[in-house]
Design a protein around this nucleic acid. Structure first.
Lengths: 242, 242
DNA sequence: CTCTCTATCTTTACATCGTAAAGATCAGAT
DNA sequence: ATCTGATCTTTACGATGTAAAGATAGAGAG
């Protein structure tokens, strides 16, 4: 860190490298009807801009680098600006997680669409699940390994709920039975919990590198996806399952 | 003066250690408070004491409260003392995780010992796994959801390895075949990954409260343990496995 | 026994973080 | 045009991790 940012905290540099007299100064002089594209200066769409900035920071610097101040820096606003839109860090993370869940759900839905055979259909969801997590480990971390999430926020609650509903639905399809909205048999619950636990557990272990040990001992060049496929299709041990 | 650290930071502050010359000293070289065993002051066993303090802080204040300074406070030493023994936060967390893995392994081993029937034997490990996590959620978090772990530390590496070996061994037992040290068939790897993923995934989802939704829809009074049991024993869906 | 050495612990200092509160600024309604 | 409220910036504070320098005590050498 040669920078250390002791100086300006708002390390932005949009097209207009203004930098004038007193630090405060006017960051404006660029309205001109406010071209609706991006980053006008009393912002207008800061909330969205912050979420996108957060996504960029997350991809670039990982979970540890995702701080309120870093996001504000990335968006080119003062470090306290996010507070007004998200309340606190929990708020920002929660909204970001909601974005992630929506991407996540979309990815799984698209993958299911593309399936043709029943076997493909059965594997499409889990594969898309893991693939999303591998492609966006930071986002997956936000969604599933952050204790700082507020599920009472409607956007997050809704997006996460949709994810769960999709899962329950998929399991119902596979069992060829209707999954009720408000009551489950033990076996139904077990089937859902098993599917979710297996895929979620696999994903977190994989992202944490804890499966390297297994992958390294498998036949040359076996990928994580192949292992997942085997997990889901290989016959369960004779005596007792699992 | 007195601008940094308004609090005494050492929580105790025997008496005013002002004096310019010889200064602080006077740490009383006696025990403070408890110390029936020993908490002498050029400590002698600070490393152990810090680990125990960390465990206490973790149980009391949770993961978020577990900071280097909080641990030092709990142990009654200066905030920089841990550095000398653990290098940095990663060091402390790693050593603490090693302690956790040892407890964890011991709990599972004990549970397996107690099993009599084959079914019990098959369920003992997973149940103990989840039970440990429920009893020590903070520790489980340190072990499995902290990116700040250094597996190159021998103690951690060894303890985690033992955990994995126990798992592989249990799976081998259940499949009634020998699991080689350095090569696995795809089906063997899949069986291990499935068992681990399922139990680990179930545990993290449970601790995050993400299974409440399912548990609430199950027959009145169904516990998490019962659900786990059903997951592990209920017949897999007819068409294609979960 | 005294003296020095060294591992251990304490102080001090600093950059960063989240958050609160007060000041500045702009968009619109009156 | 002025007033008002939402939006953004400054300033400030306590907390954290970590580095560096000072103090302390126990052990070994003379």
């Amino acid at each position: 860190m040669a920078k250390t940012d002791t100086k300006s905290e708002t390390a932005r540099s949009p097209r207009a490298p203004r930098k004038t007299t007193s630090t405060a100064a006017s960051r404006t002089s660029r309205r001109a009807g406010s071209a609706k594209t991006e980053t006008p200066y009393h912002h207008g769409a800061l909330r969205e801009a912050l979420l996108q900035a957060a996504e960029r920071v997350l991809e670039r610097d990982g979970l540890a680098g995702l701080t309120l101040r870093a996001v504000a820096r990335e968006a080119g606003v003062s470090h306290a600006a996010p507070t007004h839109h998200f309340g606190d860090l929990t708020g920002l993370l929660s909204e970001l997680a909601a974005v992630g869940f929506r991407q996540f759900n979309a990815a799984m839905a698209a993958s299911c669409e593309a399936a043709t055979t029943p076997l493909e259909a059965a594997l499409a969801r889990p594969k898309a699940y893991v693939a999303y997590a591998q492609a966006h480990p930071g986002m997956y971390g936000i969604m599933f390994r952050t204790e700082r999430l507020d599920y009472s926020r409607p956007s997050l609650h809704e997006a996460a709920e949709a994810s769960f509903a999709g899962l329950a639905n998929a399991v119902g399809m596979m069992r060829q039975e209707q999954i009720s909205r408000d009551a489950l048999t033990l076996n139904q619950g077990a089937a859902i919990a098993r599917a979710w636990s297996m895929v979620h557990g696999f994903t977190t272990l994989l992202l944490d590198g804890r499966l390297e040990d297994i992958l390294g001992r498998l036949p040359e060049g076996t990928t994580a996806e192949r292992l997942l496929e085997a997990m889901l299709t290989a016959p369960v041990t004779p005596k007792h399952p699992a």
